[in-house]
């Protein structure tokens, strides 16, 4: 890692620490400190977990796809997760599904999701390598298809209820399932560590298939392993806060801008820190300062969508 990367990382870590402290202690009254601190700590952990998961998933996915304008969500990863969850409910029956402990259920979700994503997106990426726009469009439409099927299954499960499983159309950073947090956090740490260990190989992977094969990287296996990591991370973020389509795009764009180097050893932590800073800082701003807790996700998605259009217009898609 060069000096610039280290300096950037250090400054970002400081900033995140500052924001976290602000989040924890700002406006802390005299009464009920323990309770409030616990509440805030849980939410902080959730925000950081989600931020890291989304950031690293996006970086990894962009590397596999050798494309800088994609995120796993644009390609329908989170829709697949929702569909898979719905499908498990149908398969195991609502009662059987509810009977499982939250952590076990989540582990099952992640396992099935990973297998599905590796097969589906592995095929898609292998076939689409020559025509990336067509591959993206396919992913987007697959996302629509998955959402429709989820909605359909939801209807069949419970015709009276309009949206049992039909997830909300935008994420919320407010309703985090605290039961899932330890498992989700653990999985995120493991996945990020794995990605970090693979960093030099990922650098080669990002060159594209032909150069990577020529340099003796086991391309197919590396792609599948990376996709599996992406699937785990997307499962984590979708389970915790719901579908987040464009946030990763902003974060990955920021990381590339800050570093001016394509080394994953630097990219991964910088993107993760940038995401955490944005989410913690943004949530603090909107929740404490503006009193609009729900707004952040919308603002983030809106900005991300515009950023995507901007990248398209700049011709950054290849």
């Amino acid at each position: 890692m060069d000096r610039r990367t280290r300096l950037t990382l250090g400054l970002m870590a400081l900033l995140l620490a500052g924001l976290s402290a602000l989040w924890m202690f700002q406006g802390l009254g005299a009464g009920n400190r323990g309770f409030i601190l616990h509440l805030r700590a849980t939410k902080l952990a959730a925000l950081i977990t989600v931020a890291v998961a989304i950031a690293v998933a996006t970086i990894l996915f962009q590397t596999v796809a050798a494309n800088r304008v994609l995120t796993p969500s644009i390609m329908g990863f989170d829709a697949l997760y929702v569909l898979m969850q719905t499908f498990l409910v149908v398969l195991l029956g609502n009662a059987g599904f509810a009977g499982l402990p939250a952590a076990g259920k989540f582990a099952l979700d992640v396992g099935v999701m990973t297998a599905l994503a590796v097969v589906l997106f592995g095929t898609l990426l292998a076939k689409g390598a020559r025509d990336i726009p067509r591959m993206i469009l396919t992913g987007v439409i697959l996302g629509v298809l998955f959402r429709s099927v989820s909605g359909f299954l939801g209807r069949i499960l419970d015709p009276n209820e309009f949206s049992v499983v039909q997830s909300v159309s935008f994420a919320s950073f407010n309703r985090v399932d605290a039961d899932l947090l330890p498992v989700a956090g653990g999985l995120t740490v493991l996945a990020v560590l794995a990605a970090w260990r693979m960093a030099p190989q990922l650098d080669v992977l990002a060159l594209g298939r032909e150069p990577a094969v020529s340099l003796g990287v086991r391309h197919q296996r590396l792609v599948l392993v990376t996709l599996a990591l992406v699937a785990v991370l997307v499962s984590v973020s979708t389970a915790l806060v719901g579908p987040v389509a464009f946030f990763g795009l902003i974060v990955a764009g920021l990381a590339h801008g800050l570093l001016r180097s394509a080394r994953h050893a630097g990219l991964i932590p910088v993107a993760a820190l940038a995401a955490a800073i944005l989410l913690v800082g943004g949530q603090w701003l909107f929740e404490r300062m503006l009193g609009q807790a729900a707004t952040l996700s919308v603002v983030v998605e809106f900005a991300g969508g515009l950023f995507f259009l901007y990248l398209l217009l700049k011709g950054r898609i290849r």
Binding site: D131, P133, R134, I136, L137, V140, S169, F170, A245, T295, V298, E301, F302, G305, L306, F308, L309, L312, L313, G315, I317
Partner: peptide, 30 residues
Amino acid sequence: VIRRLPVREVMLIPIAGLVLSGVLGSVVTF
């Protein structure tokens, strides 16, 4: 918007449309 896209990329137009729809949709939903 699409008039400014690179001409030869046929698939970019629907992608741009989908994303624009998504962005507008999120505003409406919000």
